[in-house]
Design a protein around this nucleic acid. Structure first.
Lengths: 155, 155
DNA sequence: TTTCCATTCATACTTTAGGGTGATTTTTAA
DNA sequence: TTAAAAATCACCCTAAAGTATGAATGGAAA
């Protein structure tokens, strides 16, 4: 907390230190002036103050503009980051076989083609798809595919 | 170009300036020392050098940590940034009406529903869809939707 | 062991989709 | 202004999709 406060108020601390130094310098100059009454002492003090300022000015003017560098990253491919919505999948109580049929429907396959792909009869696929539509609360395969994609059941 | 070079070599220029100032100071001190033989002049010069260094040190130590690199990562959703593949759309020579029918097919609507949505007869939609399938080189609406999505003809 | 459920298949039927052909009207481009 | 393209609709027919019902099998849970 203390360190954080110091870091946060760096600028203010810098000003404080400068002010303290200046006051010290003036006090010292005043003492020298009074005791010794030497103009060279005042001259030296002035040089100290001016060159301290010069040093600070130089450092600030030539170093601080470094604060920049903004990198903007973006864009994610569509199909690459597909995550199956398991919650929705469980909620709809779709069986493994029904999901399989749904995936092949989404690829544009006909019932006959799905049947051949899965080595079962056309009637079996019809049964699966009918049960699928009831569970998904749709009436057509196109609706099922649309809803499945919307719910992230398929890519 | 000159300004860019200056900006790029800020640090080097700073060192150069400091070195030049130091040399000038030494030369001046030497001159003062020889001509007037005054120890206070040398004292003033030393103060100038020391306080310049102090100023620079202060500024660097307390200000430079500001040069922070800020990285902003922008995450863009997949569906949000849909861009229609106009090249492919022109290549397939799909008419405006055909694309409209295709979009409604993708929403899972039946031909009858599409006809009602577009205030035309069922036969008209059948004609459009038939022409659409020929142009897209597919045989079923599900295939058409899959291909259209793959080719970014529809979101 | 019995019940439940997923998977499989069948038959019969209805609805929707799709193919082919032809035609009319409107719009667009040459 | 004329030809081409787009949009509209109709009819007929086939293929595919979807509904309903029933049933056999095998695995997992109660």
């Amino acid at each position: 907390m203390i360190i954080a406060a110091i870091v946060k108020n760096k600028q203010n601390i810098l000003y404080g230190v400068c002010l303290a130094l200046l006051l010290l310098l003036l006090k010292w100059l005043e003492w020298r002036f009074v005791i010794v009454d030497n103009a060279f002492e005042f001259y030296a003090g002035s040089i100290a103050v001016i060159f301290t300022g010069l040093g600070i000015w130089l450092a600030i003017k030539l170093i601080t503009p470094k604060l920049k560098t903004v990198i903007i990253e973006k864009h994610v491919p569509a199909a690459a980051n597909f995550v199956l919505n398991e919650a929705e999948l469980n909620r709809l109580r779709l069986s493994a076989r029904e999901l399989e049929v749904l995936q092949l429907m989404a690829e544009g396959l006909s019932n006959q083609e799905i049947a051949e792909r899965l080595f079962v009869s056309l009637n079996t696929i019809k049964t699966h798809s009918s049960n699928l539509f009831i569970k998904m609360d749709v009436e057509r395969r196109t609706q099922a595919v649309e809803k499945a994609k919307r719910l992230s059941l398929i890519p």
